[in-house]
């Protein structure tokens, strides 16, 4: 990549940020009651800052990954342009209903103005999400491994898994609430249940489809069943396992919101729901964006681990 091209790519997000900020400060709002504060430029600036930090990281310890990362620059630029257009459509020209649609600065203000409350709901959601996800993961991994490894268990377990798995976890919540008696436990269980199914299915499928040649080679080299399971079957099934983990994460996102609507008094799902009821749409957007950020972070971390552990794969699936 030529130096000029690189420079342009590095500067592009700054340009986007300038457009958003200039628009925010210098084009008058159609309804100019909202006091201009630096929170919005700072919040948008954080995106650019994040980008720059990653560029610096890749430049000095990324082994030539900088060019690859820089290819994201136009995307960030377009994202910032989208903010700009959104602000124009909402605050500046009032082309769509100001009651339902809030410009960027109002969404940011909804967070900064109530940050303790928002933080609290976020932490509650995170706790629920991780507890549910990891319980489901552990349970799914266990059942999947047993069903994948022992044909006799598989014969009895798999049909049950296949029948009850695809049913949305929320259907079970009334029963789960009755059984667990505690709302929080019920929420955790219902998320875990949703994660359990794809993880079980993918783990079992992965283990079943290990090429028998691997077992044969390993056995002639002296491997015993335990070694075969942990050092042959599991590594070979790892791509499937990751697939299950991704599917589980998507499902847990859905069930998280569903679980929080059960009647809890905390969590982003509840926050969004309540804000909708009160007509505070700026908070609704804020809640949605926070959920989005949480999930994109979690998923990208999953991908990172996935890439690290599966670097031996020849044709790794590109997402």
């Amino acid at each position: 990549m030529s130096k000029t091209r690189k420079t342009i790519l590095v500067l592009l997000p700054f340009l986007g940020w300038m457009i958003v900020v200039l628009n925010y400060f210098f084009i008058p709002d159609i309804n100019d009651m909202f006091r201009k504060k630096p929170e919005y430029p700072i919040a948008v600036g954080l995106i650019v800052l994040f980008f720059v930090a990653k560029c610096i990281y890749f430049k000095f310890c990324g082994k030539g990954k900088l060019d690859e990362y820089l290819s994201n620059s136009p995307r960030i630029f377009v994202l910032l342009l989208a903010f700009f257009v959104w602000d124009l459509v909402t605050a500046k020209f009032g082309l769509i209903s100001a009651y339902f649609f809030k410009d960027g600065s109002r969404i940011v203000a909804a967070v900064t103005g109530n940050w303790q409350i928002v933080l609290r709901h976020t932490l509650y959601s995170l706790r629920l999400l991780f507890l549910g996800y990891f319980c489901g993961l552990a349970a799914g991994f266990l059942t999947g491994s047993i069903a994948g490894w022992f044909p006799k268990v598989r014969y009895w377990v798999m049909p049950v898994v296949k029948k009850i798995g695809p049913i949305p976890a929320s259907i079970w919540t009334p029963f789960i609430v009755v059984i667990t008696k505690a709302l929080f436990t019920a929420s955790v269980v219902s998320i875990a249940f949703g994660v359990w199914f794809p993880v079980t299915l993918m783990t079992a499928t992965g283990l079943i489809s290990v090429p028998s040649a691997y077992y044969e080679v390993a056995r002639t080299l002296g491997a015993k069943p335990r070694f075969l399971f942990f050092r042959v079957a599991l590594p070979s099934a790892l791509p499937n396992l990751f697939m299950g983990m991704f599917m589980g994460m998507t499902i847990s996102c859905v069930s998280l919101i569903a679980a929080e609507l059960l009647g809890a008094e905390y969590g982003l799902g509840w926050f969004i729901n309540t804000s909708t009821a009160w007509g505070e749409y700026d908070k609704v957007y804020a809640g949605v964006i926070i959920i989005l950020l949480i999930f994109s972070t979690v998923i990208s971390q999953l991908f990172r681990i996935n890439g690290k552990l599966l670097k031996w794969q020849k044709d790794k699936v590109q997402w």
Binding site: Y214, E216, V217, R219, T220, G222, P235, W312
Partner: peptide, 18 residues
């Protein structure tokens, strides 16, 4: 199978993750 009787397979079947 036993490690006393080693077998070199017709198709190498290396473990791709190692």
């Amino acid at each position: 199978p036993h490690h006393e009787r080693g077998l070199v397979f017709q198709d190498p079947a290396l473990f791709p993750w190692l």
